[in-house]
Amino acid sequence: MIKKLYIIILVICFTIINSCKTNADDNNQKWIGKYFVESYNKDNLKTSFDITIFNLDSINLLYISDDNPPEKYYNLKAIPKSSNKIKIIFNLNYKEMGIIYLEKSNDKYFISGDPIYFINPGNGIFQISKSQIIK
C-alpha cells in the first residue's frame, strides 16, 4: 500500500513539474524575435530600441537616445510580469529610465517604460514592430 502511494505521489509530482516546464517553454517561445521602435519627442530628438530576444534569458538591446552614441547591451534577462508582459532592465544606472516593458495583446506587441513618457509622451503604450522570428 505504501509503495503504491509513493508511486502515485511521484507521478503527480512529475506531472506538475512537466506542466510548469511546458508553460514556461510556451511563454518563452512567444517572445522570441526582433523588435524595433523609434519615436521623436517635441524637440525632435529620437529614442529608439532595437531588441533581439533569443529566449527570456538571452536578450540583446540597442538603445539610442537623442544624439548620444548607441548603447549596446547583451545577455539581458526578462522578468515575466504576467503571461503577456515582460520587464527588461537594461541599465540600473538609469534607475526607472533603464527599464522597459514588452506586452503582447492578440497579435500586436507594445513597449512601455516607467515612467511612460520616457518612451512615448502622451500615450500609455506604444506599438512595437516584431520583424522576424529567430530560429
Rank of each mutant, 00 (worst) to 15 (best):
I17L: 15
P69R: 07
G33P: 01
G124E: 09
P80E: 06
L5Q: 09
D114I: 05
Y101R: 13
T22F: 15
T47P: 02
D114Y: 08
Y35L: 04
N28W: 06
S58E: 05
N18D: 12
Q132L: 11
I17P: 14
G98W: 00
T15A: 12
D25R: 08
F36V: 09
N91G: 15
A78T: 00
F90G: 04
S19Q: 10
K95T: 14
P69H: 10
D25P: 06
N91C: 12
G113H: 00
N93T: 04
Y117P: 06
K30H: 06
D114E: 13
S105L: 09
I88T: 10
E71H: 07
K46R: 03
K135H: 02
I116E: 08
I134W: 05
I51D: 00
L61C: 09
D50G: 12
L76G: 00
T52Y: 04
Y74R: 10
I59H: 01
Y6T: 12
S65E: 09
I119Q: 03
Q29W: 14
T52E: 04
N93P: 03
K42R: 13
I100N: 02
E103D: 06
I128C: 04
Q132M: 14
S19M: 13
I59Q: 01
K77G: 10
N68T: 14
Y63D: 03
C13D: 12
Y117A: 04
K81L: 09
N91I: 11
Y40L: 11
F14S: 10
N106D: 12
